[in-house]
Design a protein around this nucleic acid. Structure first.
Length: 257
DNA sequence: ATGGCGCTCGAAGAGCGA
């Protein structure tokens, strides 16, 4: 089973790239973030033509998440963190067979100590409580998305320049470690990886060409699924296409039915 | 060098992302 995540930064703009990438990479499940589409405008027909059933939870202009699945028989759909009502559409969970799939667009946080930063930390706190329950219910749980956290300095192109900034600050990293302490495994770090592998590069200052990036998009798996994970990679290719998203897809393969 | 680029809304330029 192939599971992937991709912040597309506008599905309206990126739909042709998403369709092309689905045909190349062939994920069974793809978590999409930043669709920036109301549900009425979601391109369900185009994606169905590409062979994918879609769930979506959108809003105008900002945020918006979707789950694309080869298997149309998804159940247990959730669009909120229980007990954390939120107008921002950042959560979409569903069960495919025995696999519980949770797709997240974690708040960006804007700047350390801002209102948005405090919202991000509160959001992550509520997420942790929910994921603890989800883990108890679902031995095969995978949590994907744009976490907007680079967990360690090796996930940052220039740790000195980024020290203490939003996306790398210690409270954010502590929130990420709280998730892994629940028993969720960062699939990317289960394997030997090259140095300087990132999933996001600023549009400005030729950041992609210089590989000035951050690894902020992640695939976390329960221990049962992590044990069945055979690979986890970032696919840099779409970031090099014309008019790309600033994020690249992350892919993990699992030896489960 | 504290900007730089790209998307949205809406029809200019501000807000936002990371």
């Amino acid at each position: 089973m192939r599971i992937a995540t991709w912040n597309v930064n506008s599905l309206r703009v990126r739909l042709p790239q998403v369709v092309a990438w689905l045909a190349e990479a062939g994920p069974d499940l793809l978590g999409v973030q930043e669709t920036k589409l109301q549900d009425a405008d979601f391109p369900a027909a185009e994606l169905a033509e590409a062979g994918y059933h879609a769930l979506y939870s959108g809003q105008k202009t900002y945020n918006g998440v979707a789950v694309l699945s080869r298997d149309p028989g998804l159940t247990g759909v959730a669009t909120e963190i229980p007990g954390f009502p939120d107008e921002q559409r950042r959560v979409l969970a569903a069960t495919a067979g025995q696999v519980r799939f949770i797709n997240l667009y974690v708040p960006n946080g804007a700047a350390v100590d801002s209102d948005k930063y405090r919202y991000k930390l509160a959001w992550l706190e509520a997420l942790g409580e929910w994921l603890e329950e989800e883990l108890a219910r679902h031995p095969r749980l995978v949590v994907v998305g744009d976490f907007n956290i680079a967990p360690e300095d090796r996930d940052v192109h220039d740790p000195a320049a980024w020290a203490g900034e939003v996306l790398v600050s210690e409270p954010e990293r502590a929130a990420f470690r709280r998730l892994t302490a629940l028993g969720l495994v960062d699939c990317f770090r289960r394997f030997d990886q090259p140095e300087a592998v990132f999933s996001w590069w600023d549009y400005r200052a030729a950041a992609f060409r210089r590989n000035n990036g951050l690894r902020i998009d992640h695939i976390l798996a329960s221990q049962e699924l992590a044990a069945a994970c055979s690979a986890c990679t970032v696919d840099r290719t779409p970031r090099g296409w014309e008019r790309p998203s600033d994020h690249a897809p992350v892919i993990a393969d699992f030896d489960v039915a």
